[in-house]
Each structure stands twice: as structure tokens, then as C-alpha cells.
Write a protein that binds this DNA or RNA. Structure first.
Lengths: 131, 131, 131, 131
DNA sequence: GTGGTCTAGACCACG
DNA sequence: GTGGTCTAGACCACC
């Protein structure tokens, strides 16, 4: 469970942590029942204040993604994997829909959008292609 | 020049105004030399605090999209149309790139992303129909 | 909107504030659309740290009881009254059910419970009776 | 002596054990002189950390409900039955008083409270049937 | 050891 | 002026 935080980003640090934990669960790096790093541990690893990590964990618990056992630690909730995947999928779809709306609103054609997408798909990952 | 603002959105009100003015210019609804509503006029129309509208206009002027002539009004800058189109295109491309990165990060395949895009293009608008 | 906090109670301060705000709404002291005291104001009034008040307000917003408008203030949500009343009713019923379960579990008879209730009703409020 | 613990409840695990032991004594399931399970036995049965069980036993001994005889075991104290019954009765009465105060505070009428009680008495158990 | 809470003080963005 | 966030350090209860 490696968390990398950018302190000066426009998205709050506590939200970055929430997102990355959920992403780790979504991609299977953490599975239900696994123990995730303690508040103090992650705070030390990520160079983030423990209070900020605690807030992230509180939010994750509120969303039902993790379960915290006092004096023991924080564990991934039973059905967290599917829940996180669903969340990510919904978020991505919403994001795409909003982006498309904005793009068409700004006068771009659907073809422009497709081209921009293909460019991003090709350059962002390079699944085999040269960079 | 009709501006619609959502006060509870995550994007600031002043930014919504900036974006919508630039969008109007980008799609040709406002052309260089046109006069856009005064601060107090737009404030009254949009039910927004005049200070907020003023800030939006300050930002638009800073970007060279409009020029204000004291005692006269605010007019669209000579080369605003192309500038706004360029801005929109860049913003859209950046947005798509970020979204694609997030999506692949979350374990979606490029194909998933393409499908979501096509769905958004098909369902969200008329793919080119008049509004 | 008068909030009284007991710092040494077993229920956290932020939760006390949440409960009292919801109670004020439930009994009609605050109605939808009303502005509730600012974070700093309530912090000053209640002798509580602003961060603690902020956390209470964040929780209230999460529950849909209030809506916060940045730079403006916090207002009671449209359907907050009924929602709070419902919450209170559910909480009370759950509490009674749990209590009854415990009481019968401990060997008390239903009659014992009824007597204890009548005593509490008589002494706790004195709706007209001498104390 | 069957103890069932809910790790995720708001009442601490050690307190749940204390309460259940006292309840068992109050309802006569354990009588003075009876031997109750050893720390490690109950820890194994209840899937609870032995330290936690030890703390519960320490608390029970502090309250005079049990006495531990080194090398022999833990036995129910001579006057534990009446003491536990008294404790339970006091706890229940306090709980009812607090609940009634909250309920009236929230605007419910005494009649509402009585109805909720009767519902709980009627539906929650068999009002005296064997279990 | 663990998480939960609170305080104090700072900075930022928005209106 | 408003709320939002972060840091720092302290205390508590639980396991």
C-alpha cells in the first residue's frame, strides 16, 4: 500500500488518500480482510499529518470501504472490492459525460473528441506502442 | 448572453461565469467588438453578487478575452474567438487525458473508455442536431 | 440558536453540537432557509474550538440537514424539519427497544419497565405537576 | 456461560463481557459459588483477546461480583445475585430516564413514549415465554 | 500498540 | 466576512 500525495494539488490531501486507497482496493492490491497501514504508519510514510490521515480513514469508513477496530487497526470491508470498482466506474462515466457535454458546448465536433481520446489512450499508457 | 450559475457546484461561481462567457465567444454567439452586459446587469440577470461578476470580468480581461472601456462598457477583444476556441480545445484535451489516466489507473480497459465515450456522445446530445 | 456543550461528557463535543442543531430544527426553532450561526460565531458562543464546530457542520451537511454556501454561511436544508423529526423518532424507538431488550434480559418484568417509565415521565418533566 | 461479543459496537468489548456476566448472574444462570470460565477459556470461546477478558474479570472483581482464587479459578461472589439485580435495575432506570428526557426534548409526547414502549414490549420478546 | 477527540493557529479560496 | 484545509501537539479509551 504505497500512497503518494501531492500537497499543492487542487484536490485536498485527505481526498487524495481516500481516492488512492479506493483505487488500490479496486485494482485488487488490497482485498477484503486485509489490514491497511495504521494512521500513524501511513502518516509517517506519506509525510502527512496523522490527523489528515485519520480524516481520510474516517471518510473511508463512512463509505463502508473499511472497518476500523479500535486498538487493532483498519481492515478492508467484506464487499469493498466490488463497491470501489462500481464507484470508479460511475465516476469515470460521469466524468466522460460531463466532458463531452462541455466539449460539444464549446463547439467541438464528436470527431474532435474521439481524436483527443485516442491520442490520450495512445500516449498516456503505451500498451506496447513506442512512446 | 444568458448565464446560468449553479451556486452549489464544486467549481466556483466566478469561474462558471468566466467559462460560460468564453464558451459563448468560442461558439460564435459573441463576436469581437460586441458589447457584453455590464457587471450590475449580469449580476441582476444571474442572481449573483456583483463583486463576483466583477471578479469574473477582471479575470476575462486578464486573459485578454475582453477589454473594458471606462464609461462605455465591456467589449469582446479582437482576437478573442480564436483564443477562446484554443483554450477550450486545450482544456478538453487536458480533461480527457486526466480522465483516461484515472480510468486506466482504476483498471478499466481502453475499450471500456471508448464505449463510455460513445455512449456519452450518443445519448447526451443529438450528435450535431440543432438545439 | 443556543447551544450548550458539556466538554467532559461521554458523547463527543462535535456530536453534541450535531444533536442539538438537529433538535432545534426538529422542534421548529430553526426552519428551512434559516441561516444558522457561522462556524466562528458558534465557536465563540459555545466556547468550542472552531475546528470542532466545523466538523459538526460538515457532518450536518453530509446528512443533508444543512446546506453550506461558501463565503455566505450555512442554511437549513429545505426538507430538514421532517428529516430531523424522523431521525429523532427512529432514534428514540431504537433506544427504547434496546433498553427493553436489556431489561427483560436482566430478569425484569414488563411491569417493572412500565413502572420505571411512568416514574421517569412523572419526575422528569412535571408537565404541570409539582416537582 | 455463553458470551456473545460484537466487536464493532459502540460499547467496548470488555464492557460487553462485564455486562453479560452480570446479566447471567442477575437472572440466576450463575449462582454464588459457581465457577466461571477461566480467562483463556472465555477468550477462546468468545474469540476475544485474553487481555480484554482479563480486564473484564478485573472489573468484575473490583465491583465485588466475583472473587478469584489463585490456582483454582474465578467464582461468583456470595452476595453477587442481589448486587447484580440491583445494578441492572439502577442501570435500566437511568437509561429510561435519559431516554425519556431525550424524547420529550425532541418534542415527543408522553403518550408517544408509552406507545413505543408497549410496542417494544409486545414485539421484541414473548413477554415471558420460554426462550 | 491502536484509533478518537479536541485545541491552537495558520493559510487559502470564495463572495 | 465566510467555510475548507492542513499542521502540530496533546489527551483519552481500548486492545
Amino acid at each position: 500500500m504505497l500512497i503518494r500525495v501531492e500537497p499543492n494539488a487542487d484536490v485536498p490531501v485527505f481526498q487524495q488518500i481516500v481516492d488512492q486507497v479506493k483505487a488500490a482496493i479496486a485494482r485488487g492490491a488490497c482485498r477484503p480482510g486485509d489490514v491497511i497501514p495504521s494512521v500513524r504508519q501511513m502518516a509517517a510514510d506519506s509525510l502527512v499529518n496523522p490527523n489528515t490521515v485519520a480524516r481520510s480513514y474516517r471518510e473511508l469508513e463512512r463509505e463502508g470501504v473499511v472497518v476500523t477496530r479500535r486498538g487493532f487497526g483498519v481492515i478492508v470491508a467484506p464487499n469493498a472490492t466490488e463497491r470501489c470498482r462500481q464507484d470508479r466506474r460511475t465516476a469515470i462515466r460521469d466524468g466522460i459525460a460531463e466532458l463531452v457535454r462541455d466539449a460539444l458546448d464549446a463547439g467541438l465536433t464528436p470527431c474532435d473528441v474521439r481524436n483527443a481520446l485516442e491520442e490520450a489512450l495512445g500516449g498516456g499508457t503505451g500498451t506496447g506502442e513506442a512512446e
